[in-house]
Amino acid sequence: MPGIYLAAILASTVGVLLIDRRWRLAAWAARGRTLAAVGIGTAFFLVWDAVGIATGVFVKGDSPLLLGIDLAPHLPLEEPFFLAFLSYLALVAWAGAQRMLERRRTDAAASPSEAAR
């Protein structure tokens, strides 16, 4: 069924957006920096894809899940959406991990007897 892959990427993006909104990890903490980081990450990976396509390392396989629209040879329409999702997911995961580590440090400093055990 054409479009399922893009729909899955968009649905996953909504899920990450909800996590981000709930804990204010990236876009809700610093919208401009998040947009810049996702844009730069997406552009970097599109260049990476272009090099891979030009050298014959990356080729697009046939899948009934793709829309069938190519932005360039071997570069389906879904690829920039996936790369933006990947960049955003990495940013949210990083911010979440940083927050968890910071909370552990704060908890350990507040309760030295617990840290000694």
Rank of each mutant, 00 (worst) to 15 (best):
16 V>L: 10
96 G>V: 08
117 R>P: 00
33 R>F: 04
24 R>P: 04
1 M>A: 13
24 R>F: 07
20 D>V: 07
67 L>M: 13
25 L>M: 05
49 D>A: 05
23 W>P: 02
46 L>P: 02
73 P>D: 12
105 R>T: 02
24 R>T: 13
52 G>A: 04
92 V>E: 10
39 G>C: 04
76 P>H: 08
3 G>E: 13
25 L>G: 05
24 R>A: 15
111 S>Q: 11
99 R>F: 08
59 V>W: 03
20 D>P: 08
61 G>W: 10
43 A>M: 07
77 L>M: 07
52 G>P: 01
80 P>E: 11
102 E>W: 12
51 V>L: 11
12 S>C: 06
6 L>R: 10
37 A>S: 10
96 G>N: 10
96 G>D: 14
59 V>I: 01
1 M>H: 15
20 D>G: 07
107 D>L: 13
15 G>F: 11
89 L>S: 10
34 T>L: 06
109 A>Y: 09
77 L>V: 05
9 I>A: 04
26 A>P: 12
36 A>C: 05
77 L>E: 03
76 P>M: 04
44 F>M: 08
1 M>I: 10
110 A>N: 12
16 V>E: 10
77 L>F: 09
35 L>Q: 07
34 T>F: 11
17 L>S: 04
69 I>Y: 11
36 A>K: 09
8 A>T: 14
84 A>V: 05
86 L>A: 12
107 D>C: 00
81 F>Q: 01
28 W>M: 07
57 V>M: 00
7 A>M: 13
42 T>P: 03
37 A>P: 02
60 K>F: 00
10 L>R: 06
32 G>P: 01
4 I>R: 13
3 G>D: 14
37 A>I: 06
58 F>I: 02
100 M>C: 01
21 R>F: 14
86 L>C: 05
111 S>N: 14
104 R>M: 07
4 I>D: 07
104 R>K: 06
84 A>S: 12
82 F>E: 02
23 W>A: 09
75 L>I: 03
62 D>Q: 05
91 L>P: 07
85 F>I: 04
34 T>R: 10
6 L>G: 06
71 L>Q: 09
68 G>T: 12
7 A>S: 15
108 A>M: 05
85 F>E: 09
104 R>S: 04
41 G>P: 04
108 A>V: 00
15 G>P: 10
105 R>Y: 04
49 D>C: 01
71 L>F: 06
113 S>C: 00
76 P>E: 11
93 A>L: 14
62 D>K: 04
26 A>I: 11
21 R>W: 15
104 R>T: 03
67 L>R: 12
51 V>F: 11
35 L>N: 07
42 T>V: 03
83 L>R: 07
77 L>N: 02
51 V>M: 03
17 L>W: 15
94 W>I: 01
82 F>Q: 03
39 G>I: 05
28 W>G: 13
28 W>T: 07
100 M>K: 05
86 L>V: 03
87 S>Q: 07
34 T>C: 12
115 A>P: 00
